[in-house]
Design a binder for these strands. Structure first.
Lengths: 148, 148
DNA sequence: AAATATTCTATTAGTTCTGTAGAATTTAAG
DNA sequence: CTTAAATTCTACAGAACTAATAGAATATTT
């Protein structure tokens, strides 16, 4: 399961994705529109900035904005910022690698091998999907709903 | 990431899978062999029994044993027992379904649709893999290592 | 009856998660 | 150069969850 931070970050990024190229957007506006606690959102946006996803402008007329095109922001990268590794065990990740204490031999561990396959499948699925997909899907469904 | 309970359960089940058909195995033996805290393992095995994965026998000569063939125990079912839903959001699961509080409209939510796709991919990968795969992989790697 | 195991009930220390409060800093505009 | 409007930084706190332990109760075999 995603943490609230990771989930809220997807909400905020989708919102900023729709505004891509329009200049800074206020934290308050994002918070109100996406139903995210204002102060909590502050920390989230700051973290996204530190990780090179968002840019910001301080002072009057300031706010946050997406740095990259929505189709260049994949979900694996975003989720990892807040929730860390996507794999189910530390020993099947690259960045957060750590051997299990209880493991006899990491080289022959069957659990590790099988869960590594699962990790690769999931990570690839998340890497293949971007903010642009989320935005496009929402637009498609909204249109379809309005027509009926 | 898997909880310790889920991880330990895979260790214990792999161990019991190798003993499938040999009758009850002592908690203590599993705990020692798999480096799992004895008392903690008790709770895990009991949970696996309540979920129809293991059988047990009390008293002298008792212990735990796998009820089904290792190739009929898939990883999705095991993981769900301890860690609940595999999907990244409550709104993309069946059993643990719950709408997000912050969501405007669950029917048009793009995040939901995209993460539902990812969920299905991951769940299918876990359903396709069983205790038999873990055991076979471990044997293969142990043989290969011994030869060299 | 004794020995051996599982089963049940409670508890606890530590960590993480979600969220809040308030002060400090930066920027734009008048 | 002052004021208003923003982000940024530091600190904290309650709630929930995790990992693990302790001990008594129950069941089974010999």
């Amino acid at each position: 399961m995603l943490s609230k931070k990771a989930k809220y970050s997807l909400n905020a990024l989708s919102f900023l994705g729709k505004r891509y190229g329009d200049g800074p957007v206020l934290i308050t506006e994002i918070a109100e529109e996406e139903n995210i606690p204002r102060k909590f959102l502050e920390a989230i946006l700051l973290e996204l900035k530190k990780n090179g996803v968002l840019g910001s402008k301080m002072g009057k007329g300031g706010g946050y904005y997406l740095l990259k095109n929505p189709e260049d922001v994949n979900l694996a990268d975003v989720i990892r910022i807040f929730d860390g590794a996507i794999g189910l065990l530390p020993c099947v990740t690259h960045k957060y690698f750590e051997p299990c204490e209880e493991c006899h031999d990491i080289e022959t561990c069957g659990i590790r091998f099988v869960l590594k396959e699962v990790r690769d499948i999931t990570v690839n699925a998340l890497k293949d999907r971007t903010l642009a997909d989320i935005i496009a899907e929402e637009k498609k469904r909204t249109r379809r709903k309005k027509r009926s």
